[in-house]
Design a protein around this nucleic acid. Sequence first.
DNA 1: TTGACATATCGATAATTCACGATATAATGA
DNA 2: TCATTATATCGTGAATTATCGATATGTCAA
Lengths: 100, 100
Amino acid sequence: MKPIEIFKALSNESRLDILRWLKEPEQHFTPHEGIDMREIGVCVSQVTEKLNMTQSTASQYLSILQRAGLIKTERIGKFTYYKRDEEVIRQIGEYLKQEI
Amino acid sequence: MKPIEIFKALSNESRLDILRWLKEPEQHFTPHEGIDMREIGVCVSQVTEKLNMTQSTASQYLSILQRAGLIKTERIGKFTYYKRDEEVIRQIGEYLKQEI
DNA sequence: TTGACATATCGATAATTCACGATATAATGA
DNA sequence: TCATTATATCGTGAATTATCGATATGTCAA
C-alpha cells in the first residue's frame, strides 16, 4: 500500500465520484452486455458517459485509481471492466486510523 | 469537513510526518518553554528543525494542515503552537470508511 | 522605542496535475 | 484483410503544488 499515492488519487472530486459509483454500480450505471456489474465491474465507456468528460480523461482517472490500488481491472473482449478493491480501501481506512 | 482539501493535505510525506510526530509529541520533540506538548502543541521552530526544511516551508505546511482542519493552533506570547484535531482526524477516517 | 526573535506572507521557479484532442493499439465482426 | 469500436497513450497549455529566499508582522525585553 502506498498511502501518498492513494491520498493523491483521492484528491480529486471526479475520482471520488468514480469510487462512490463503483460502490453501488447498479444504482449508477445502465446494464452493459449482460455483465454483472457488481462481480465484474463497469467499462470505461460507462464511466466516461457518467463523468461527462472525455474518454481520455476517464481512462486516465481509472488508471490513476488502479495504480493506487483502489480498483482492479479485467479485460473481456474489447471491453475493460473496473471494480473496487474493497480490501485496499479498507486498508487505507485502517491506515488512516492507526498510523496518522 | 472538506474531504478533497484533507486528502490533498495528506498527499505529502512531510505533512504526514508532522501529523505523526504530533501524535506523540514528547517522543519526537525536545521540551520547549515548559509547555505541555500534548495539551498545547509544538511550535513552528520545533517543527522546522525536525522537518529539516526552511521555516517558510514549515509554516506553510502547518497552515495547509490547519486549513484542512487536521490541526489547530494557539498563540502564546511570541510562539504559535499547533496540535492535532483528533476529532477531525477521526471524522475523515469515518468518512473514508462510510462514503468512499 | 528599539532590537531581537518567532511566525506569516510574498514572490519566484521547478515540478506536478488537470483535462483535452489526436493518435496508437487491441479486439471484433464482416 | 479491413473497417469499426473500445481503450490506452502522447503531447499540450493552463492551473496547482513544492520549496525556497526575502521580507513583513507581531511580541517581548531592555
